[in-house]
Design a protein around this nucleic acid. Structure first.
Length: 595
RNA sequence: GGCUCCUUAGUUCAACGGAUAGAAUGUGAGUUUCCGGAACUCAAGAUACAGGUUCGAUUCCUGUAGGGGCUACCA
């Protein structure tokens, strides 16, 4: 059993013994004291002095005395005010290492039997991915891996927003100005090529509007009257009617975009189990709305538009289909949700979508409930904060959007520069060097993003390149590479056999510190999974690497004072390396054996 | 305007209602011929403001100031 769990239960037992009073064990606070503290755990005993009707010190002391009798692994305790500090025997921790060194599945939690479907990425198919998508993808991918480690079955899905007005914009611009350009002929990545036509459309539209506004029209009027706008509406109509020429154009451009996206996914090490297309799900959504209308869950206004009344929930009235019968955003989501449930019957459906859509997902869940969908309660909006620039939000109009492919290339280049400067890579082949720089560049980028609590907005400054020192991915990767180096040397010298059981009778402070951090790995996985927070794991791994580096700086390993210390420290090192490798993997980050 | 989220060192991020609010970066000063110096050590530096609840508040409640988001028959 987990120590903190044990302490909670034994504390409840002790309080009952002492004062004949029942406290629920999950209300007992067990903390981990500050890092340089000589005690392992702290029980907050202030609340018990009300029960005992004695001073906090006295109550805490009495509790400590009883716990010493109830838990044989305890070595000592100390009562400071209402804080009960507990120290476990060195032997307890040594034994923990011995068990862990032979446990290949350390940190993999038992199966929950739950099936979880997680959606992330969700791009429009009219322009390339940007930094915002990267945060989304890194969070989505990492949470998937973390939930897997926590014992769940995971289905990772993408949703392509592949139809609608915005898609027609790039199509129309290509039709007008494209001149049969292709990714091959232009040498450009498909998503970037299509994105250029999207921008081109906006420029041309702007020009038309400016002319109209010069004639005295308001901006709003100009937008309505611009010829390009009616052409867009016409194209959308043709698309909905399935007109062959438009559909072919649509297919062609979208294929280019998908190929571009795939190339990016490959570079960042991302993959999906399935992709849904809104062009497939929106019709289904319409029939969901019709069905709800028949059942009286929704209502129709005089103009023919369909609404749901959410006044009771203080969310107002929400449009579900337009007066002309066409679908809106939420219509598609209703169809998509049904299809996913049919496909997989998941216990939970997670939507990784930015917090600007908090309202939308509240409504979606509520509407699903009103429709009595069996999956309604399992809907969870994994709402994350936007990535801001120093100037504020990224804006397409102002050209401040940070392109994903460019950023990835820059990270590789920065890594290459650092690697060359440090000059530790003599024996690397060209291929290995490229691989290493990409590993480090992606490690820096992913860690930079994932170390921040997803719920919070975060800031990215394009002027300053992402750091490789301090609280970073490369810091942890370096720690791993250095451990590998030590283990290699140990193997060369004495043929160190990890399976040999470590014998040790007492611990140095730094050893104990690392060991305790190792101990907390499984509970960190569980916490990260429950809170949907890769940042919890990222922070943990950084702390582990830091603790290890302190240990490494202070105590010799290969030249340890005796054989048992040497073997023990090698065991400890290899367990830390294992956790770093597995833990970073859950963040989507690889670790190199040399760097 | 209505709803909602946020405000912690110069800067970027931490802290189940618990001890002296942690890191990183930047700044200054250092690291024994020692297993990898992308590391380690030391110093200075912060809870927007005013109340309230509590043995105890960065955390919970109320108000003020400043900022973000939503408030489309866009997605």
């Amino acid at each position: 059993m987990n120590i903190q769990q044990l302490l909670r239960e034994k504390t409840a037992e002790a309080i009952f013994q002492l004062y004949n009073y029942e406290v629920s064990s999950d209300k007992v606070a067990v903390n981990i004291p500050p890092n340089d503290f000589p005690y392992d755990y702290t029980i907050v005993a202030f609340p018990f002095s009300k029960i005992s009707k004695k001073s906090p010190e006295q109550t805490t002391t009495e509790l400590g005395g009883v716990l010493m009798m109830l838990i044989s692994e305890l070595e000592s305790f100390e009562a400071v005010k209402g804080f009960l500090n507990l120290r476990f025997k060195d032997q307890f921790w040594i034994q923990f290492l011995q068990e862990t060194i032979n446990n290949n599945s350390f940190g993999e939690l038992p199966p929950t039997g739950q099936k979880v479907l997680i959606e992330y990425c969700g791009p429009n198919t009219n322009k390339p991915l940007h930094l915002g998508h990267l945060r989304n993808i890194f969070i989505g991918y990492s949470i998937s891996e973390i939930l897997k480690a926590a014992g769940n079955d995971i289905i990772k899905v993408n949703i392509y927003n592949d139809r609608g007005v915005h898609i027609c914009k790039s199509m129309l611009a290509y039709q007008k100005y494209g001149d049969h350009e292709t990714p091959e002929s232009s040498g450009e990545k498909g998503d970037h090529l299509v994105g250029e036509y999207y921008v081109r459309f906006e420029q041309e539209l702007r020009a038309q509007m400016n002319n109209l506004m010069a004639d005295g029209l308001s901006e709003e009027e100009a937008r309505k009257q611009a010829p390009l706008n009616s052409e867009i509406s016409e194209m959308l109509r043709k698309w909905e009617d399935g007109e062959v020429e438009v559909r072919n154009l649509w297919q062609t451009l979208n294929q280019w975009v998908y190929q571009g996206f795939e190339a990016t996914f490959l570079k960042i090490g991302n993959d999906f189990d399935k992709a849904y297309m809104e062009s497939d799900t929106y019709l289904r959504g319409k029939s969901v709305v019709e069905d709800g209308l028949k059942r009286g869950v929704f209502f129709k206004k005089a103009d023919g538009s369909v609404w749901v009344d959410l006044e009771e929930e203080a969310l107002g009235e929400k449009l579900l289909t337009r007066a002309d019968g066409t679908s809106v955003y939420i219509t598609q989501d209703l169809g998509t949700a049904d299809m996913r449930y049919e496909d997989y019957h998941p216990d939970r459906m997670i939507y990784t979508v930015a917090n600007e859509q908090d309202y939308h997902f509240k409504v979606l869940k509520l509407v699903c409930k009103k429709l009595n969908r069996p999956y309604a309660d399992g809907i969870h909006h994994l709402s994350y904060g936007l990535v801001d620039l120093p100037s504020g939000r990224m804006k397409t109009r102002e050209g401040t959007v940070v392109d994903a492919d460019e950023l990835i290339d820059e990270m590789d280049a920065t890594a290459a520069k650092k690697t060359t400067e440090l000059g530790k890579i003599e024996n690397f082949s060209e291929q290995e060097l490229l691989q290493l720089n990409h590993t480090l560049g992606m490690g820096a980028l992913k860690f930079f993003i994932l170390k921040v609590d997803p719920k919070k907005k975060m800031l990215f400054n394009p002027e300053e390149s992402i750091d490789f020192h301090g609280f970073t991915g490369p810091f942890i990767q370096y720690t791993y590479a250095r451990i590998c180096s030590v283990l290699r040397k140990a193997a060369e010298k004495n043929g160190f056999d990890r399976k040999e059981i470590t014998k040790r009778d007492r611990l140095e402070f730094k050893e104990r510190q690392v060991l305790m951090q190792v101990y907390h790995y499984p509970s960190t996985i569980l916490e990260a999974a429950n809170k949907y927070e890769p940042s919890t794991l990222a922070n943990y791994l950084y702390q582990l690497a830091k603790d290890y580096n302190h240990f490494y700086a202070e105590l010799p390993i290969l030249n340890a004072e005796d054989e048992s210390a040497r073997n023990f420290r090698l065991d400890l090192s290899s367990v830390v390396a294992l956790i770093i490798r597995k833990g970073m993997k859950l963040l989507g980050i690889e670790v190199p054996e040399r760097m």
